[in-house]
Design a protein around this nucleic acid. Structure first.
Lengths: 344, 344
DNA sequence: CTGTTAGCGCTTTCAT
DNA sequence: ATGAAAGCGCTAACAG
């Protein structure tokens, strides 16, 4: 039924600048002007063009425009890991923020599952993004090797959010101050009377490593150097679970455990339960929605995603700038929930 | 240091077909041919062109090609909700599958946060996607109104995965058979001795509604019509929590509760805990990684994402076809965990 | 098999 | 202020 058109294939082609020009009785270039530099065209003609565009349901072709201009009018967003709820939140904030600035964020995922389980930056997507000629590029989350992004023209600003840029000197980054975040956590546990506070994390990336280091610093600051105890884990639940089992079976069992992120904390919690232990304080990191689930109720550090997004957008839109390699650290906030209630 | 180029701005512009032609000593069209129809060019010249391309780090411009061809060479992927772990998984499978078929999937998120909290399909992204001229389009997850996609040329197949297409007759869909899924769940609970089995869900979308209906059918099939009890909730944890409180405070408290999805189940669990109840069996749906967290350990229905992805890709690549509005239902699998262990 | 000529839809100079 | 012409990087008929 639907396919039974007359002789003409009625494939609803999008109207072009030419169609609009014809309908409005002006030249193509004038139509183009209306959409790129509206102020430069007479009110009368402008109205007519706009009307015609409206009638024809016309929207400038994104693609053709990028091709012709040599530089697009949108911000390219690359998400590192679709599975991490944290990143989805940041992307939402960024888009809202971008929207407010009258800019447009085009989100793509450049990560390929990867045969070995480790996600890899897909060069085809990177190339596609380059072809699209974004005005700037935002990378959300940790990508182990950002160097493929070096093919992006040098005048296109690359901003990394919630991660430490790896192998890409020109990138600038905005993320939470993990030294402070970890200090908040350790101080909180110390207040609750804990001394023997351990950390599970430090593996699988710069961010993780940074947090482990921050934990050490915080312990030292509290004069608890002798209690420093780190069991290696990356950012996954499974890895937290295994590390926790090992730690809890060891001789100097801690009274409190700090995790590299919420997922790791969940894995630790599983291990604690499985071993029939109780009264061990536990903290997460990132304050994802998981932490807020009542069954889990995890004390965690909030990264202030809104703030991260706001700063990223300032750079992406060129409102603010900073030299290559520069960074901005956002203040974290401690969210206290049940998991850290055990006292000592 | 890096910026101190000589007089020429060394913005690493991507090499064009022209550069390659010059270097290989052939015409532009020949280069083009090598990349579009390699078989049609002599081995010798082909080698030379490929070599030159290699040297220049040349990759055909995605954009220009789409513009010239009128139909791109990639599959556009639109993700409904970045927050739902289920969708990320499906996307991963689809990409892997596409990769295997020698095709390329370009993933974008078309959902804007939405001021009222309800995500909306962003017309700019839809337009951008249309401009890119994908060979076919995959929508992953529920979007309340797909009609903006009707602007996609009629010859571009639109496939919806893990959702029921709304307001878009031309779309075809692949998803799990929820009648079977719910039957598996109800049968399982009946086997454990339960009769008074309730359902929380049914609100906020066709899929949710379908599952509620499937629950009713399964109850009827077990001769448990008089126990049918549905409390309205959408797909969020919060909504499950509220519905559960209401249900559990009511007079005919069930011995088992089936949830519309895992998140809702988690909300229900919170309510159960909060009311100090125990021995109520609980089931989720979707078998997300949340269900597998030991602390949660939720009996759930696995959708077989790999199978969904495989079917979607067959359609997307044109290997198989089906008439507009057609659908394919995948067999679900019950994953039994602790949450349903309560017997009655 | 190879090279030439248009042209995709748009944005520029550059005249008018 | 407006129109004509050239061109972004590529492919698609053509002719050689």
């Amino acid at each position: 039924m639907r396919a039974s058109s007359k002789k003409t294939e009625v494939v609803a082609k999008r109207a072009t600048i030419r169609d609009v020009a014809a309908r409005a009785g002006v030249s193509k270039s004038l139509v183009s002007l209306v959409f790129s530099d509206p102020a430069a065209v007479s009110a009368d003609k402008k109205r007519r063009v706009l009307k015609a565009a409206e009638d024809l349901n016309f929207t400038p072709n994104f693609l053709a425009r990028s091709l012709a201009t040599g530089s697009g009018i949108f911000v390219g967003i690359l998400v590192a890991d679709l599975h991490n709820p944290l990143f989805a939140e940041i992307v939402d904030f960024v888009r809202l923020e971008l929207e407010g600035a009258g800019e447009y964020g085009f989100m793509t995922s450049a990560m390929l599952p990867g045969l070995d389980g480790v996600p890899r930056l897909d060069s085809r997507t990177v190339n596609a993004l380059i072809d699209l000629r974004p005005r700037s590029v935002l990378v959300v989350g940790s990508i182990s090797d950002l160097s493929p992004l070096d093919k992006i023209p040098a005048d296109v600003q690359i901003v990394v959010a919630s991660a430490i840029p790896s192998k890409l000197k020109r990138a600038i980054s905005v993320r939470t101050d993990d030294s402070q975040g970890m200090a908040l956590i350790v101080d909180h546990l110390v207040e609750r009377g804990h001394k023997n506070i351990a950390h599970i994390g430090g593996g699988g990336g710069k961010v993780s490593l940074g947090r482990a280091k921050a934990y050490e610093d915080a312990m030292n600051a509290n004069g608890l150097k002798k209690y420093i105890h780190i069991e290696d884990a990356d950012f996954t639940e499974k890895s937290g679970y295994k590390a926790a089992l090992k730690m809890l079976k060891g001789s100097k069992r801690p009274t409190a455990i700090t995790a590299a992120n919420d997922l790791v904390a969940i894995g630790i919690e599983d291990a604690i339960k499985e071993m029939g232990l109780s009264n061990i304080a536990l903290t997460g990191y990132d304050n994802t929605y998981l932490a807020d689930i009542k069954t889990i109720s995890l004390t965690s550090v909030d990264q202030d995603n809104a703030e991260i997004a706001a700063q990223a957008v300032k750079w992406l839109t060129g409102v603010e700038s900073i030299k290559a390699g520069g960074q901005f650290l956002v203040q974290p906030r401690l969210i206290i929930r049940d998991s850290s209630s055990a006292r000592y």
